[in-house]
Computed example of a mutant assay.
Amino acid sequence: MRSLLQKSKKALPWSLVALVSIMFTVLVLLPAAWFSPLVAQATGGRVSLAAPAGSLWHGSAVLMLAAGPKASAPTALAGRIEWHTAFGPLFLGQAKISMHANEAMSEAVQLIMTPRGATLSSGRLDVPASLLAGLGAPFNTFNLQGEVRLQWSDWRLLGDKPFGQLMLSLNNMSSRVSRVKPLGSYRVVMQALGRDATLELATTKGPLLLDGRGQWAKQKFSFRGTAQAEATERENLRTLLNLLGNRIEHDVYALVLDL
């Protein structure tokens, strides 16, 4: 009996090493497919990762945008998003992930996650406007075409409160519901302030003039703005203006959205 106990004590360290090795191997080989449902759940089905390949540590997938979990026609970003998770920071209680979109993102961004929150480094993403159709109305109604650039400052998430600035540049936009091409170029700036956020829309150039301001407060979004056309294209854009909102004064239409 004593001999058996002694042998067990000698074997215990090696058993622990074997167990740790097995657990480490399992972690390293965790398939990227395990990560996809987490992204979809965190974004309410609006962002998802399709065709995942590799592992949680080094993998890639196709970025999909949709209006929600039941959307029937999500749209895909050209190319694939690749990520690499550093192992060392895990010992400090951090998950450090480097991400890069091989066709849409000029430089990689860093995502650092801790038990208290997360930080996404500043970056830029260039995509075609057709990708926005996956977000649903009103984007799928107008079938927008043009160039879209998404830029953001360091984005911080403290608990469930986001902080940061995001700027969306819509350049040389056109729509299937209007023969006027291009309609114009626009800038949307969103400022996240924790529980609340603000949004500003402005026209940088073009015959279709859009402006307005929105706010998220108490989990509700409200936007108020106006749409009008330059005199030279007023008649050609009248149909589009009527689709955008109700006329509130001579040749000025209201942009109203409440969610």
Rank of each mutant, 00 (worst) to 15 (best):
G59W: 00
F142Y: 14
R116Q: 07
L157M: 13
S106Y: 14
L90D: 05
E103Y: 08
L65F: 14
L77S: 02
A53G: 15
E107K: 12
V62G: 03
R116L: 08
A78C: 11
R149P: 02
A67S: 15
G59F: 00
A71M: 11
L125K: 02
V148W: 09
A76W: 05
Q110G: 05
G136M: 08
R156N: 07
T114R: 07
S121W: 05
T141K: 14
G68H: 15
S98V: 07
D154H: 12
G79C: 14
V47R: 04
S60E: 12
G134C: 05
A51R: 12
D154F: 11
L90A: 08
R46P: 06
N102V: 12
L120F: 07
T75R: 12
S72K: 08
W83I: 05
G88Y: 15
R156F: 07
I112N: 00
G68Y: 15
L131K: 03
Q94S: 03
L144Y: 05
S121Y: 06
M99Y: 04
Q110D: 10
G134Q: 02
G117P: 00
W155K: 00
L56V: 12
G88P: 10
W155F: 11
L63S: 05
Q94L: 01
R80I: 11
I97V: 10
G123I: 14
R149Y: 06
I81C: 06
A133V: 08
R116C: 02
S106L: 12
V47D: 05
N140G: 01
H58V: 09
R149D: 05
L111A: 01
W155N: 01
T141M: 14
L49S: 09
A129H: 00
A61L: 10
G134N: 03
N140A: 03
S122V: 08
A95F: 00
G79D: 05
S98G: 02
L125R: 03
G45A: 06
A101K: 00
S60H: 09
L111Q: 00
S60C: 08
G45L: 06
L90G: 03
G93R: 01
Q151E: 14
S60N: 09
V148N: 08
A101Y: 01
V62E: 07
L150D: 07
F139P: 00
A61S: 14
L90N: 03
E103W: 07
G54D: 10
T114Q: 09
L56H: 04
Q151T: 11
A133T: 12
D154N: 11
H100E: 15
G68E: 15
G68I: 14
G123M: 14
E107T: 13
A101W: 02
V109A: 05
A118H: 08
S130D: 06
A86C: 14
A78Y: 12
R116D: 06
G88M: 13
R80T: 13
L120P: 06
F91W: 06
A137F: 09
L150Q: 08
Q151F: 08
A118M: 11
A51C: 10
